[in-house]
Design a protein around this nucleic acid. Structure first.
Lengths: 190, 190
DNA sequence: TATATACTTGAGTGATCACTCAAGAAACCC
DNA sequence: GGGTTTCTTGAGTGATCACTCAAGTATATA
């Protein structure tokens, strides 16, 4: 009896993520979304419920994809090389809608309004940081990093450096690649 | 024949800066500003012309004050100590409306819309970076930093680290002070 | 005190915001 | 093909957006 929707929900979320990532929460209107997703308001709300609900899905996809890319990098090249290459990777991908991190953009935009999405962004950042810590810990087990270091401390700093790099990469007149190289070489000497 | 306005324009800009800094550009409505500045729309537009014009004034005040604080720090303690203390300073000031940098918040929010304020934010960041470079150069002249380093490279990285720190300081569950300490101690060994 | 010149007031502007809902179209089971 | 169910359509909702402007008020000079 039912009727199938004529859209691919995953594809829609991807397109929404790209818009939200680039333009931010307030900067993306429903009209923008309707145009990008080729959906009329009725379909949109039937499918996603609200702008915020779709934003949450988009952010989750963003975070999941990020973790997957880092994991793949670690499986291919080991923890140390993955941590070294990741900064370059995130600022070099040309298909990405923005250089800056969507999670930090969301946090900065919505934190002051106590918007639930800001807390969600924070949770995603924590997960990412945990993954960094795990890689630092693995590198330590391999002997690539001095045992005196605390992986969690290294991960905290790494995450901070990465966020700074990605803000810098958004600027004009700043050689972000050079900064990425410096971050990478900073990991070697630990 | 004229009539004096019954407000202190500098004070108004300060209050506007605090609002914009905390809530961002889109997150601050004219109603918010009217309430904070105790001004009716007519007076507001007679005094400032537009929301964007006031934002530009607020951002300029933010940038000028920042440079003044760093300059004072350098005059009191010398370039190296100033660069070491500045990170702690910016995330510790309790009266500040936010931990994150207003310039980076503005850049991230408005860059994708090609809003002129994004470019203004970028210019202010460049000025700040130049001041950092100057201090690194002074420290080098004093012999506190190895002559092989390029002050501009150091400043670029320092600025990036600072931006990352200030995003991290906005998060919950992250010890930003520890990161600030790490940045500071990273300067000693140059 | 009279007049000129601001500044202040606040209701009101059209535009856009996120969102709703009734009606029509399409795909499934029988 | 009939009937049921879901999806799609798009005009329309009240609220809020940045902003305007004519009228009223206060202060300066003359």
């Amino acid at each position: 009896m039912p009727r199938k929707p004529n859209y691919d929900k995953d594809d829609l979320i991807n397109r929404a993520r790209n818009l939200f990532w680039k333009r931010g929460w307030a900067g993306t209107s429903l009209k923008d979304l309707e145009a990008a997703l080729q959906m009329k308001p009725g379909s949109f709300y039937a499918a996603f419920g609200s702008k915020d609900a779709l934003f949450a899905l988009a952010m989750e996809k963003y975070a999941t994809d990020g973790r997957a890319r880092l994991k793949a990098l670690a499986q291919d090249h080991g923890p140390i090389k993955a941590l070294q290459r990741f900064p370059k990777m995130v600022i070099e991908s040309d298909d990405a809608p923005a250089k800056a991190c969507m999670l930090s953009k969301t946090l900065l935009e919505l934190q002051a309004h106590n918007h639930p999405l800001a807390e969600e962004a924070n949770q995603h950042l924590l997960k990412m940081e945990a993954q960094f810590a795990e890689l630092f810990q693995q590198a330590q087990s391999e002997g690539s990093i001095h045992p005196a270091h605390d992986p969690k401390v290294l991960a905290r700093r790494y995450q901070s450096d990465l966020l700074g790099l990605r803000v810098s990469a958004e600027r004009t007149g700043v050689d972000a690649h050079a900064i990425a190289d410096e971050i990478a070489s900073g990991i070697v000497g630990l």
